[in-house]
Design a protein around this nucleic acid. Structure first.
Lengths: 352, 352
DNA sequence: CTTTTTTGCACAATCGATGGTGCAATGACT
DNA sequence: AGTCATTGCACCATCGATTGTGCAAAAAAG
C-alpha cells in the first residue's frame, strides 16, 4: 500500500524483500511454483509482497526470454467502418478472455503496407495473427511463415494458410433474392433493372458476384454484363459509377446490390448531390450491416457477416495447430430494412 | 535472398558474418553509428548483410534494454462506433508517421476495466498513452503516474493530466441553433417541442446540455427540465426513453438533440418498432457524425468532432513534456443533413 | 622518431524474467 | 546408524539489444 517507490517492482526487489531467490519469486508469480516444488508458505509470502507492492511482470522481459509475448494481432484494412470495427471489438473480447493482449492495426489495403506492418508485429514477437481482408494474403503468409508465426486469414482467403470467410456466395444469393422479391412487389422486374456496384478482383467480390448472377439469372432470366459495375472499394469510385449511370439513364437502377458498406458510402456521396426524387422507389441490397444504413429513406436489405463466429473459428483453427490451408465458410444473415440489431455497444457498462 | 534460416537473424549472427562485434552491428543498425565513430565502409557492409538476411530488430529486447518500447496506446470505450473508430484511424496514422507502433484497446467504459487494461499496457512498457472517453480519467491517471507514463486525456477531460476535448459547449450551441432554425421554417416552435436525449453525468454531456439550454432559452424563451433526458450512453436505454415519451404523448418531440451517435442508435431501435408516420416532420440533431446517419429519412444535423486535430494536439502536448493539466478545446463542425464527408476511407489504396 | 590526438572498434554489464541443473536438508526405511 | 528418496530452493546461463568504457592502431603534431 504505502508504495512510494517511483519505479516498478521487479522480481529482484521481491527477492530481496522476501529473502528468496529471484527464480523462486519468478516461479511463484508466473504460477509454475507447484511444478518447482516451492513451499506453499513461501509462495504465500511472496504473493503477499507482490500484491502489497503492486508488482506486475515486465512483459517485454518475459517475452524476450520465452519468445512468447502474449500479443495477438489483427490486421485490418481500416478501422473506420462498422464491419471491421465490430470485428475488432469481437476480436478484442475474445483475445482478452484468453488472457492475451489484442493488437489491432490497419494497413489500408496496401500490399506493401500489409507486409511491413506484419514485420513490425513480428518484431514484437506476437504469438498469433489474424489477417482480415488482406489484399495479398499469400504475401503476408510468407512473411509469417519465415518468422514461424501462426496465422489465419479472415474475410478474404489465401491459398497458403487456413482461412475463415463469410459464405459470400450464399449471402449474395439471399440478398439478391430478397431485393428481387421486394422489387417485384412494385411491378415486374427486367434484367436491366438490377445492377451490382462495388467490389473488385478479390475472392469475396467474385463469390458475391457469382451468387448475384446465379440468382438473377434464375429469377429474371438474364444478366447482361453491363449490370455488373466492379468499382473497387473506394467511396469516391463508387459515387462516380452511380453518377455515370445517372448521366446515361437520367435515373438510378430500380434496384441494385452494393458490394459493401464502404461502397454504400459512395451511394451517400451520390445522394448528397441529388434531390430526393432521384432515389424514389429504389430498392437497395448491401453486403454488410450498418445500423444507420438500415434506415435510409428507401428499403435497404443488408447482410450481416458474423465476425464474432469468424474470429472464434479462427482461434479454433490456431489452437488445432497446423491445420491444412482449408477455407471455412461462416454463414451470414439477411437483415431486412429498418432493423436495429444489438451489438457490442450493448455490453457497455451504463448503469444509470 | 537465399535465406533458408528458419530463425530470425540477430545482431550476433550479423556480428559473425561481418566479423564486427555485436555492439558495432547494433550501432550500425540503430543509426547511432556516426556517434560511435564507425567507419562508413563497416557500416555499409553490415547494412548490406542486414538487408540480405532480412534482419529486423527484436523490439522486445530493445524495449527491455532501453525501457522504451515504441508502443503508443489509445484507450477507447468501444471500437464499434464511427467516432471512435475514426479516431483510431487518425491515431494509427499519426503514430506510424512518428515511427512508433499504435496499440488501440477498448475498455467498455468500465472504470475497473480501464485501469486494468492500462496496467497491461504498462507491462508492455508503452511510451505514451492517449486516454479517450475514459469514465474515470483521474483513476487512470494515477496508474500512469505511478508507472511514470506520459499520457493525455482525449474527449473527456481529467483534472490531473492535460486534456484535449471537443468544444462541446460551442458544438452544442451550433447544433441547437441549427435545429431550432430549421424547425422554425415549419412554424413556430414552443419550448416543449425541443428535447435532448442521451448523455449522463460526464463533462461532455454537461457541456452539451449547457450549450443546448443556453441557446434554447435564448431562442425559445424557456427550457423546462423535463425536456432534458439524460439516458446514459446505451442504445437500449435511449430507445426506452423515446418509447416512454411516445407512450405519454402519442408522438415524438417535433425536434430533438441526441447526445451521441450511440444514442442515435437508440433512436433506430425505436424507429424499427414504429411506422413511418411516427417520425414524419421531426428534425434531429446528433452530436457526432455518421455518414449514414446523415441520410436518414428526416433531417439530421450532425456535429463532426475533429478527432484528427485532437490527436495531433495530444501529441503536441506530450512532446512539450510535463504540461500543466490544462484542458484544450478543439472546435467541431456542424454538418447539415444529407452530407457525405470524406474520411480515412479515401486514403485506401484502390487503383482500379 | 617520439608524443599527442584521433579514429575505429571490442568488451562487458545490463534490462527483467525463465528454466535447467545441482545441492543441502529432511524424512523414510532397513 | 547408514542409505536413499524426497523436498525446497539457489545458481546461473540465456533471450537480443544498448551503451559506457577502454584500448589498440593510425594520423597528426612536434
Amino acid at each position: 500500500m504505502a508504495d512510494i517507490s517511483k519505479k516498478k517492482a521487479t522480481i529482484y526487489d521481491l527477492s530481496i524483500l522476501s529473502g528468496a531467490s529471484a527464480s523462486t519469486v519468478s516461479a511463484v508469480l508466473n504460477g509454475s511454483w507447484r511444478k518447482r516444488r516451492i513451499k506453499e508458505a513461501t509462495a504465500q509470502l511472496i504473493q503477499n509482497l507482490a500484491n502489497e507492492h503492486g508488482y506486475t511482470a515486465n512483459l517485454q522481459a518475459r517475452g524476450l526470454r520465452s519468445s512468447r509475448s502474449g500479443l495477438v494481432g489483427l490486421l485490418l484494412p481500416v478501422h473506420d467502418n462498422r464491419y471491421f470495427s465490430s470485428m475488432a471489438q469481437s476480436f478484442e473480447a475474445q483475445v482478452r478472455s484468453r488472457g492475451q493482449c489484442p493488437l489491432v492495426v490497419s494497413a489500408c489495403r496496401d500490399p506493401d503496407e500489409e507486409r511491413q506492418v506484419v514485420e513490425t508485429l513480428i518484431s514484437y514477437s506476437i504469438d498469433e495473427l489474424f489477417i482480415a481482408g488482406a489484399t495479398d494474403p499469400d504475401g503476408v503468409h510468407k512473411v509469417c511463415e519465415k518468422a514461424g508465426l501462426k496465422h489465419v486469414n479472415i474475410d478474404l482467403p489465401g491459398t497458403l494458410a487456413p482461412s475463415v470467410i463469410s459464405d459470400n456466395y450464399e449471402g449474395a444469393r439471399m440478398l439478391t433474392q430478397a431485393i428481387i422479391e421486394r422489387a417485384q412487389e412494385d411491378g415486374p422486374l427486367l434484367p436491366d433493372d438490377l445492377y451490382l456496384f462495388g467490389g473488385r478482383n478479390d475472392h469475396a467480390s467474385h463469390e458475391r458476384i457469382r451468387g448475384f448472377r446465379d440468382v438473377k439469372r434464375a429469377l429474371l432470366g438474364a444478366d447482361p454484363d453491363v449490370c455488373i459495375q466492379p468499382t473497387g472499394y473506394s467511396p469516391a469510385m463508387t459515387a462516380r459509377a452511380f453518377e455515370a449511370f445517372y448521366e446515361g439513364h437520367g435515373k438510378l437502377p430500380r434496384t441494385f446490390f452494393v458490394n459493401s458498406s464502404i461502397n454504400l458510402e459512395g451511394l451517400m456521396r451520390f445522394l448528397a448531390l441529388h434531390p430526393h426524387e432521384t432515389f424514389a422507389g429504389i430498392i437497395v441490397g448491401c453486403y454488410d450491416y450498418d445500423p444507420f444504413g438500415s434506415f435510409l429513406p428507401f428499403p435497404v436489405f443488408m447482410v450481416r457477416q458474423d465476425s464474432e463466429a469468424m474470429i472464434a473459428k479462427g482461434f479454433a483453427i490456431l489452437d488445432a495447430d497446423r491445420g491444412p490451408p482449408i477455407t471455412h465458410l461462416v454463414r451470414p444473415t439477411l437483415v431486412p430494412p429498418r432493423t436495429a440489431l444489438t451489438g457490442p455497444l450493448d455490453a457497455l457498462k451504463d448503469i444509470e
